[in-house]
Simulated assay, not measured.
Amino acid sequence: MIVLLFRILILVALALLVYTWIQYFRNPQRRLRIAKETNEFYFLDEPDNNKKNIQFVYKGCLFQGEKYVGATEYSFEVVDIHVVVDDSLELKGLTRDDLYFLENEILLRYPHAKIEWKHPINQLLLTSIE
């Protein structure tokens, strides 16, 4: 009887281990961290949850955007997105074209949104093109 109980416990432990392993590899925060380390673009968002902020990584820089819901012509949609960067030193090497690419990616997902870049990102957009 005790041997059978130990076998059942071992099977439960293996099932729990496999479940934990699958959850680890499906974790979006892990994917975001990997994209930051490899300087890739990754966009993390829950489109159905308007209270959850968006996060995206581009060229090793982590951006966060706060979504604000408002009324459009026919429905309530995300109408404002305020984008900030946690570490301004990560912005080194980003160009205005990179910011236009990021803005385009956000507008693909939220076409009614007005994107507001917070300091120091907005300083790059305000400078004149030479």
Rank of each mutant, 00 (worst) to 15 (best):
D45P: 05
K67W: 00
T20W: 15
E90K: 15
I54R: 00
L5I: 15
F41S: 00
V12W: 03
R30E: 02
N49D: 14
Y24S: 09
F56A: 02
A13W: 05
L125E: 04
V18D: 04
P28E: 08
P120C: 05
Y24K: 13
R31L: 10
L94T: 01
R109K: 12
C61M: 10
W117S: 01
V69M: 11
Q55L: 05
L107R: 12
Y24V: 09
E103M: 03
H119C: 04
Y74P: 03
F25D: 12
L62Y: 07
L9V: 07
A71F: 11
H82G: 02
M1T: 05
P28D: 04
G65N: 05
R31T: 05
E130Q: 13
H112D: 10
K114P: 01
I10M: 14
A71T: 13
F76M: 13
K59V: 02
L32Q: 04
F101Q: 09
Y110T: 08
I54Q: 00
W117V: 01
N122Q: 09
R96N: 13
K36D: 05
H82F: 08
I81V: 09
I8V: 13
D98Y: 07
Y100C: 02
Y74A: 11
I54F: 00
D86S: 09
I54A: 00
V12E: 03
W21F: 15
V83F: 01
K59P: 06
K114F: 06
L91I: 03
F25C: 06
D45R: 08
P47D: 03
L32V: 07
G60Y: 01
F41H: 04
L102Q: 02
L16R: 14
V57T: 04
E40C: 06
E103L: 00
P120R: 07
L102T: 00
W117F: 07
R109G: 03
L89P: 12
L126S: 14
Y100R: 14
N53V: 04
A113V: 03
F43T: 07
L91Q: 05
E116M: 09
L99G: 02
A35E: 03
V78D: 00
L94N: 08
L108E: 12
A113C: 04
D86A: 09
R109I: 06
D98W: 06
G70Q: 08
E90W: 01
E116A: 10
A15F: 12
Y110P: 09
E103S: 06
G60W: 06
T72F: 03
A113K: 02
L11K: 10
L94Q: 06
L5A: 14
R109C: 01
L17K: 15
N104R: 14
L17I: 11
N27I: 01
T95Q: 10
R33G: 02
T38R: 14
T95K: 12
E46W: 14
P120S: 05
L124C: 05
D97Q: 15
S128I: 08
E73S: 11
N27P: 00
P111A: 00
R7I: 08
I34K: 11
